[in-house]
Design a protein around this nucleic acid. Sequence first.
DNA 1: TTCCTTTTCGTACTTTGTACGAATATATTG
DNA 2: CAATATATTCGTACAAAGTACGAAAAGGAA
Lengths: 229, 229
Amino acid sequence: MAQKPKKAEKDSRLSLTREGILEAALELADRDGIEKLTMRRLAEHLGSAPMSMYYHIPSKDRLIDAMVESVFARIRTPPEELPWKPAIRVRFQSARAVLTRHWWAPPLMESRRLPGPENLRHHNAVIGCFRRAGFSLELCAHAYAVLDSYLYGFAFEEASLPSQSDGGMQDIGGSMMDELRNGGFEHLAELAGELVLKPGYSFGDSFEFGLDLILDGLERAMRNEVRRR
Amino acid sequence: MAQKPKKAEKDSRLSLTREGILEAALELADRDGIEKLTMRRLAEHLGSAPMSMYYHIPSKDRLIDAMVESVFARIRTPPEELPWKPAIRVRFQSARAVLTRHWWAPPLMESRRLPGPENLRHHNAVIGCFRRAGFSLELCAHAYAVLDSYLYGFAFEEASLPSQSDGGMQDIGGSMMDELRNGGFEHLAELAGELVLKPGYSFGDSFEFGLDLILDGLERAMRNEVRRR
DNA sequence: TTCCTTTTCGTACTTTGTACGAATATATTG
DNA sequence: CAATATATTCGTACAAAGTACGAAAAGGAA
């Protein structure tokens, strides 16, 4: 009737398991992106046949749901023993690190129809952190909306930059600079030439800047609330 | 040799045109989302055959590029006659309004390999606005990264909320609340019960909150720079 | 009319997810 | 052990998608 695992934990690859399939899917997505992840390729990667996987997962869509949940599970929740600001910083720095590794995930994380339990766990933990610090419900909602939007937006932009692992974008610079100036995009050309294409520039550095900016703003808003009370 | 339009501007629908196809594609995407936009459906919507469109566009991918460019073109650039803060506010409020209408677009806008001219135009205008206000190049880069990330992230989250046109999400509330409490998500349950599911709540209201928060933070950062100079 | 260019579209091939049920492996029972 | 039942794998095939190819149709120009 119901399938009991009994003893199948010796070969997590040779004998198909939900977990093995999930793991392989994450590997492939991390390497080649989510759109290159097809059931056929996944089966080949597992040394199996496409239809064999359907005994363990109901559909590709459900598999992707599980992948997204798995990504959520790797993000740290705000440690309860810390004050709210460093605690929230931990959660969002962790999230960015995880999303940088699983760069295919951001567009999927909020667009699945129903949020999974890992997703809910995070929402709950973050809101709890704000509440303990004295944020009103309204401010909680705003704070979360702003921080989450920023996180996903940033991770998303970062994922679509050229070559997410190696140095930067210096190699593209040469020919494009002329186009920029000829097209009348002088500010862009200046920014590119004087900053972005210089060695040492990293788009990712802006994340900390924005995170601090938002956290400071939230602190101010929270203090304002307390004062008005 | 080269195709000259000559006289085909009478029936922008019956006689296929690049513009007519683009317009119809935008209509369909606005209504049903980008993943429901197939060449076959699009052709049907135009009263034509799938392969007929390929005389005017090279591929579906290029069509989507054009759709994205068209969305960019509808966003206002920061008015040069205004001070930087209200000018930037105009640009980002406009962007949110446009992205709310074209809710399928955010995941595509930054992920196309090469940015189109409309995209560049916006980047250039926004950076120019910051520069005129005295932002350093570094601060420009940070400011743009933060604001754009926020914008796309917010638009993206908003697009994946239930029912993007009608009232809210009150209809879902009932059964889920119990699940939330039983699952130990008490803070979430509180936030949902006391705020989100109440009439009058709108996720979109957080946009202004976050925009002001970020703009104030940028102003502070800019003043800090000036003071240090 | 005849010829040439522009525009439309029918057919067919490839890639994808996956329904269906047969084939095989594994476990349980007599 | 054999017989039976269950759990797992996979071969075949179909639908939906993008689009290559070249024939067909439409529209002028000579």
